[in-house]
């Protein structure tokens, strides 16, 4: 029994990884005042390109690096469109999402589809159990016997919190997101803070994308992110734009996901569709009952016009 629960919680952490990473990407963007609904597209593109690099170079680490950079590049484009050209950020994010569908479809057909006879996939990152920590009863198997991106997610949870709330950079970021005019007055370069935050956030989305191919499946499928980028945004709002809150939301979502997979295996009498929809239903219920109104950073989504 205990083993089952521990196993369930370990797969919860795995399932929560792309959601939490996506949420941290959202946090950095939105805390600095830039809405990013393009996370889904950034993850999808990073997943695709990292897999192409993995298969053609056979080097998973190079693939990881390219995937992360892909996210950063797309985010930089989002930043240029919404900061330099002051386009509406929802539009810019939608552009990234549609672009991702087209770009990955195109690249998939050209480099990964059966007809392109691509080199074999080198598979996924191996598990890296952490010495000593992995032997802790219960906590060890839940947190310390995973693949590398899961650890990266766990570390980023604390890192994001630390950066946002305990460093001058974090203070500047939040100032720019809440009241850019005031931040500008005290000499903070609003545009620079936004550019850097959005681009760095894109690297995190790229990492989340790599999780799909390099850690989870080992191959790329069209549309394989299947809305996880949006669910990550839900986790971010759910967690009220805070790293720990978003992590908790991602874990709840991941738990519902792990639980339904477990149920599907053990209780074939319940139609699987109801189990698959459970995490989504749960999100709505928790959102309605527990969290209530979520208030975004005050300047979220507004282009800044230097006065």
């Amino acid at each position: 029994m205990l083993d089952t629960i521990v196993g369930l919680l370990a797969s919860t952490v795995i399932a929560a990884t792309p959601l939490a990473l996506g949420a941290y990407c959202g946090i950095f963007c939105e805390r600095s005042g830039v809405v990013n609904i393009g996370i889904e597209g950034m993850m999808l593109t990073a997943a695709c390109i990292s897999q192409i690099v993995a298969q053609y170079s056979g080097d998973l680490r190079l693939a990881l690096l390219t995937g992360i950079l892909t996210g950063g590049i797309l985010a930089f484009i989002h930043a240029v469109i919404s900061i330099r050209f002051k386009a509406e950020q929802i539009i810019s994010g939608t552009v990234i999402n549609i672009l991702a569908v087209g770009l990955t479809g195109h690249l998939y057909q050209r480099y990964l589809a059966f007809s392109a006879s691509p080199p074999q996939s080198p598979g996924t990152f191996p598990k890296v159990p952490i010495p000593l920590l992995q032997d802790i009863p219960i906590l060890g198997p839940i947190f310390f016997q995973h693949q590398p991106i899961v650890y990266a997610m766990l570390i980023l949870t604390f890192l994001t919190h630390f950066i946002l709330f305990y460093t001058p950079w974090g203070l500047r970021t939040r100032a720019v997101g809440e009241h850019p005019r005031a931040a500008d007055t005290v000499g903070i370069n609003v545009y620079r803070v936004r550019y850097i935050n959005v681009t760095l956030a894109g690297l995190i989305a790229g990492l989340a994308g790599c999780w799909f191919t390099l850690e989870w499946v080992g191959t790329f499928n069209l549309q394989m992110t299947s809305g996880k980028g949006f669910i990550a945004l839900a986790a971010m709002i759910f967690g009220k734009w805070s790293p720990f809150g978003s992590f908790a939301a991602a874990v709840i979502f991941g738990f519902a996901n792990a639980l339904q997979i477990n149920f599907q295996l053990n209780m074939p009498n319940i139609p699987y569709q109801f189990l698959t929809m459970a995490p989504y239903l749960l999100t709505m219920i928790v959102l309605a009952g527990v969290i209530g109104r979520a208030i975004p950073p005050a300047a979220d989504g507004q282009p800044y016009e230097k006065g």
Partner: peptide
């Protein structure tokens, strides 16, 4: 209840 329509419409999808 003030829960956000962006999340809820995605979940409803």
């Amino acid at each position: 209840l003030g829960s956000h329509e962006v999340i809820n419409t995605i979940m409803l999808n």
